[in-house]
Computed example of a mutant assay.
Amino acid sequence: MRDRRLKKGKAGVLLVMTLVMGGCASLHSSGNPAEMVSRRAQARWDALVKGDLKAAYGYLSPGYRRLKPFERWKRGIFGVGIWQDARVDKVACPKADVCDVTVLVTSRLMVPRIGKPMVSTTPVYERWVYEGGDWWYLPGQ
């Protein structure tokens, strides 16, 4: 009887380990997380530079979108029209489901009394999380 319970316990542990390992494997099965995040972050910034806020909103994490509807989120976006370019510079993934991204954003501003535009490039830091089978931008992290 004791041997039977021991075998069932071992089988349960094996099943849990298999599911956990399978979940980790599926996280990386469709590519390198850093590469996937880099592509999605670049696509989000391409949409922002073009002024396509609907597309950019689609890259926000599902939980964030549930808390902040599009119209409310849109009111807090400042930079459309002055952003000229954005390029993903670095992606570091300290955990299997978290990546930190640095994007170099170039802006062009008309400065009163100078008469010509001022162009500057600034790093923007983002946190991306893996949820529900895809990578999402999580603002405010």
Rank of each mutant, 00 (worst) to 15 (best):
M1A: 15
R4P: 02
R5E: 08
L6E: 04
L6I: 14
L6T: 10
K10Q: 03
K10D: 00
A11I: 11
V13Q: 02
L14F: 07
L15C: 04
L19T: 05
V20D: 00
V20E: 02
M21L: 15
G23N: 09
S26E: 06
S29K: 12
S29N: 03
S30N: 14
S30C: 08
P33C: 10
P33H: 03
A34T: 12
E35V: 11
E35T: 09
E35I: 08
V37M: 10
S38T: 12
R39K: 15
A41Q: 10
A41Y: 11
R44Y: 03
R44L: 04
R44P: 09
W45S: 07
A47N: 11
A47G: 08
K50N: 11
K50L: 13
K50G: 10
K50W: 03
G51F: 02
G51P: 03
L53M: 12
L53V: 14
A56K: 03
Y57T: 12
G58H: 05
G58A: 08
Y59P: 00
L60K: 09
S61F: 02
P62Y: 08
P62I: 08
Y64A: 02
R65K: 13
R66F: 06
K68T: 15
E71M: 12
E71R: 08
R72I: 14
G76E: 15
I77E: 14
F78G: 12
V80W: 00
V80P: 00
G81Y: 00
Q84S: 13
D85W: 01
D85I: 00
R87V: 07
V88L: 07
D89V: 15
D89E: 15
V91L: 14
V91E: 10
V91R: 14
A92N: 15
A92G: 11
C93Y: 07
C93N: 12
C93F: 08
P94F: 05
P94L: 02
D97R: 09
D97L: 10
V98G: 05
C99A: 13
C99Q: 10
C99I: 00
V103P: 00
V103M: 08
L104C: 05
S107Q: 15
S107Y: 02
R108E: 14
L109G: 04
P112F: 05
P112V: 07
R113D: 07
R113P: 01
I114V: 15
G115A: 08
P117T: 14
P117E: 07
M118A: 11
V119T: 15
V119H: 04
V119M: 06
T121H: 01
P123Y: 01
P123I: 09
V124K: 06
V124L: 04
V124E: 03
E126W: 04
W128R: 06
G132Q: 04
G132M: 02
G133Q: 04
D134F: 05
W135N: 01
W135A: 01
Y137F: 14
Y137K: 06
L138A: 11
L138K: 14
Q141G: 09
Q141M: 07
Q141T: 10
